[in-house]
Amino acid sequence: MPSRESLRFVLAALMIAAAVALFTQLQAIAGFVAFRLFGLARGSRPGAAVEFFVFETPKVLLLLTGVVFVVGVLRSYFTPERARRLLAGRREGAGNVLAAMFGVATPFCSCSAVPLFIGFVTAGVPLGVTFSFLISAPMVNEVALVLLFGMFGWKVAAIYLATGLGVAIIAGWTLGRLRLERHVEAWVWDIQSRPAAEASKRWADRIVDGRAAVREIVGKVWPYVVAGIAVGASIHGYVPTNFMASIMGRDAWWSVPLAVLAGIPLYANAAGIIPVVQALLGKGAALGTVLAFMMSVIALSLPEMVILRKVLRPRLLVAFVGIVAAGILCVGWLFNAIL
């Protein structure tokens, strides 16, 4: 008798096959919907907008589901508990690099920032290394990377990954150099933390983790993604290019610090900010300026600062925000200069 497990396996394989088939036929389907079903003219504005929307929405959602599932499975290996054990007592430098990379793969929600911070520093993870992790975890995540890849291609996604890691590593290292340990609230050091016993997981458990990630993450972000693509589609069809070029173009040097400042009070996750990114880029804003804006919105948020104020004294908090903002600023200018 086929077990429930193997039945599920067959079902999953069928779904993947269907998704791949759909993926390869998307261009044809999009053309069919836009030009045959809706009877829009090829090359017309509404035609271009509808074709874009029908093509992009399933593409990005399929991509997102696939990547979130894979990352969900991988994440069962990259728990914060394991990151802590690996980073404890590590020297700065290599520690910062490792922490930033771990931050990419480890699940993070700003509500966990404080327990994570305390768990790390009390277990002997250097302060600067802890910061590298705290900067990279929200900023460089799989949702941001998939959306950037799906909408702007692999180059933009790769640039975001590399510069995001760079900011996390350098800002964390700099904060570590400043020796600000005494500006951590004193009660933090009194907390007794103990390493958790790690449950060993079977493959079936990891698959469950992957599916839970899809349910939780894709279930939450899909409306933003669809809205973002709709905005992108209308821009694609209607807005004249170079509309934003004068305000956020590469010649306006002051637009980068302005973008970083504007991003701080705004709070959104990667899925929420992509529509805006799409709109700005589509209207001729420079890539560096837009990347700086996006990083600032995700990495420097007012609510997270309020949360972190519980464990960081004002001077350390200001140093943290200032150094991260400076890093983001450099990313913006760098890309406006070289691209």
């Binding site: 914060p80 508990e81 966990s112 327990p115 994570l116 007794q192 933390s193 103990r194 839970a212």
Partner: peptide, 22 residues
């Protein structure tokens, strides 16, 4: 911290963490 838990939400049964971070 006493339970060694760093991601919320978590569930512990009789002082042993059984769910963390989801």
């Amino acid at each position: 911290m006493a339970l060694g838990l760093m991601s919320s939400p978590g569930v512990a049964v009789d002082g042993k963490v059984v769910v963390s971070g989801r």
